[in-house]
Design a protein around this nucleic acid. Sequence first.
DNA 1: AAACAAACAAGA
DNA 2: TCTTGT
DNA 3: GTTT
Length: 656
Amino acid sequence: MSQREPSSIFASCCLFFVPMDGLSARATKLMKPRVLEMGGRVEDQLTVIFSGDLTQQEEDDNDVIDLEQDDERVMNPVVTHLIVARSVNSDSFLRYLGRHDISEAMIARLHVVTDGWVTDSIKKKQRLNEKDHQFPYHSVASSPALSRQATPTQSPPPPSPPLTPPDPPLPLALAASGGATVPRVPAVKMEASIPEVKMEVCSAHGGGGEEEEYHHTRPSMERNRRLAKMFKQLSSVYKAIATEPSQDFQRYRHYSRISEIVSTWPEPIESVQDLRPLRGCYGAKTDEKVNEFFRTGSSQRLAHLLSDERTKAFMEFQQIWHVGAAESNKLYRRGLRTLADVKRHPEYLSTDLQRRCLKYVEDFQKKMTRAEVEEAHQQVCSVAERLYPGELHIVLTGSYRRGDAQTKDIDFLITRHDDREVADEVNRIVDSLSHDGFMTDTLVLSPGCGFGAKSEHKSVTFYGVCRPRKGGPLRRIDMWMQHRSEYAFALLHCTGSAQFNITMRTHADKMGLQLTQHKLAKVIEATGSKQGARRSGQSRNLTHEGPPIPCETEEEIFTAMGLRYRPPPQRFHDRDFGAECHEAIAHRKLTWYWPDGGAVDSSGEPLAKRRKKDDIPRPPIVDQLLVRQQHQLQLKRERAMAAGNLKGAMMALKGA
DNA sequence: AAACAAACAAGA
DNA sequence: TCTTGT
DNA sequence: GTTT
Ligand SMILES: [Mg+2]
């Protein structure tokens, strides 16, 4: 993996720093001297003029590439490594190549890695494996799961696209939906990648001018990214200090939303005017913060919060898993201020779990590549296959499934191929993996028996710690197992994003539905406000649910809620999602299909149109929905009446 | 001034 | 019930 | 935090 002599760790490496996101400047100042010192070479020309004698052209030292001239330029043949800033968007990178007339094929034999590879190699004084620092620009998943390069010196061949469709489908039709033919499926599904690898949702310079330096006064995708980061930081701070559904908690929710919207904004935000049409999450305060950012490149409020002693302490404490705002408050009041303080006084923590998690703080900060996630998947699958040959369906979910290039944890969803109830499969798989040394700790494991309160079917939750690579960092790993009839809901749930789930469920609520990780059901009766429930000491309102609306696929869940399907890479609360939800409410008519019939058919019309392509006709139930306005007004009236507030009731009635 | 609030699981 | 996590 |  490495050469012994620090002075030769970059031997036979020739680096080219792709001048995007300010890498050029940083490279020249900081990295280049170290690389040279360590036996490497740095080129400042990506292409050379092709005139038969490449070695000579290489000396051609113009520092400006004149793209206007008609000379044929080819890839600089001595370059072995392209170094790309991690923050660069893959699309921007591909456009950059395009402008230099370089095809993906031409760099297939090169290492295309992030600047982290260089800095970490320098730091560790050894040449790290390029595979772990690949800059994933391909339009296909970056690495096959099992083939690890033994040596970093050979460039890997470009990965082939997965043959499987993006969504892990539930392999068998539901028994309840009638005698569909049962396709033969592989015993334990190894497939989990999606074809598109999404880079950081938003990044440097989308709208041309990639090589110009960033400035907060100039619109650019990089500016979007930094604005989103500012909101993300505000959200993190308020989450860290908010102890209850309070002002700060509302701020945390607000900044989470706006951060996700900005980070997925499809073009450079020209001015605040672009954001003003956002409804519900863009008011005066946010507007002022955006203005301030465009003026100064930062936020005083954020700067103040980040320098506040209490805030700093809370954020540090919460690097410990299962330490939140309340626990932080306790520690702070006992005079602790830093993580080191907590490590010196673990007795101030209130559970053994928290004390156990002290040792994970450093590793859990680290992100991992898709390759490592896929390796973990392989290991879990092979154990599952040995214990339950042919019985289980195991898919990767979470941000991996959404296509993120790097992830903080590994999320699995497991379901049985047949309709049997979930039993102790997860426990046994975990035990076996622990025996193998893969699984190293259990943080949470639901009891081996008993039913979830909110579901007909038992489900199992496991949060743990594993080490996918020998000698590598420990990683957070989550596994959920649910009954097959709930597969689509569980998949939607654990694919997220969190903010997307919240928006989906809020939308369901407005449609008079309730969406959970187990089911989608119509709400027949709701009493009082959520705040009212809290005041009167209930954790939530009493609701009566109608029959669950069965969905075999995620697509059907979207359809049932009047929304267009979104593949996992688009599962975030973005600019258009709010508008689409509103549109769905305006339509106010949905068709739901129950597996068994007895349906009323009031309008009759959408019967054939909404049919899915499967052969089994399912009688439709056509339902006029209680839409948001009606629903909310109804609640308002009830509340007003209950409070004996005649005026309020009249107002509400007038609104109707 | 008051309402707004994802929904759930686990564990102490 | 409170707290934390997904 | 925003909205009514
Ligand atoms: Mg995840």
